[in-house]
Amino acid sequence: MPGERLDAEWVRSWWEQTDAALTRLMQSFLPTHGFPPGHNAVMLATDDSHQATDALLDLTPIPSDLTTLYWVISKASLPDVDSGYFIHSPATVAEHFREYGPAPMDGESIALIFASDGGGHLFAIGDSGQVWKSTTASWSDDFEVAAASLQKFLEQLGRLIANQL
């Protein structure tokens, strides 16, 4: 819903549900796929990741939903979910911002790359709160809306995990 912002308690609840679903998925992965899974986890925020989030805020204004996300989780590595999904740490987001600058998004005053998939597509969040996905594996190509909000993006990711059970 436009105007609504991500709530830290909702993110914590999402993490709990996702962690439980990932545990079940990893237990069934080898018998289902015939090979062992990679390391799949959503990591909770730490003092170090909070400091990295603060440093990112000092570097550039970031969408408030991204700040909320990073206050609860530090990153996610989900190589065995669909084609793979990765929520980058705040330190990685800052490093990429320094190297590449903001994602080129019409209608967004700032858009930060915060995630990627196993195919090299990038996900950015703009100051509007929308999540965008690159149309190719490139920092400079077109982006299209992938989710109306970061919460919707996380809900979609949760459904991808659940659909693999």
Rank of each mutant, 00 (worst) to 15 (best):
L56I: 05
S13F: 02
I87W: 07
T60M: 11
A162R: 14
L66H: 13
I113N: 15
I110R: 15
S64C: 09
L6V: 07
L22C: 08
D47V: 14
W71E: 07
T136L: 04
A162N: 08
A91R: 11
P2D: 11
S128W: 05
F123H: 13
N40T: 12
K75W: 10
L154V: 07
L59K: 10
F153L: 02
T92F: 05
T32M: 03
L6Q: 06
S13P: 01
S89L: 05
N163S: 14
A146D: 03
S74Y: 03
D54A: 12
D106G: 03
A41R: 15
A45Y: 14
W15L: 15
D82Y: 07
V42K: 05
S109D: 14
S128G: 14
A21E: 14
T67P: 00
F153M: 01
S116K: 14
T32L: 05
L44Y: 04
A8T: 13
K75R: 15
Q151F: 00
W139T: 06
V145D: 00
D7Y: 03
F29R: 04
A41W: 11
L59F: 09
F29D: 00
K75Y: 15
I113H: 12
H39V: 15
G34K: 03
L6M: 11
I62E: 05
W10I: 06
G107M: 08
I73H: 02
L44C: 07
L112T: 14
H33R: 12
A91E: 10
A103V: 11
F86C: 08
K152W: 00
S28R: 09
F86P: 00
A115I: 11
S116P: 02
V93Q: 10
Q17W: 00
W14L: 06
F123M: 05
D117W: 02
D142T: 00
W132Y: 15
P102S: 06
R12T: 12
P2W: 01
E99K: 09
W15V: 13
A148D: 09
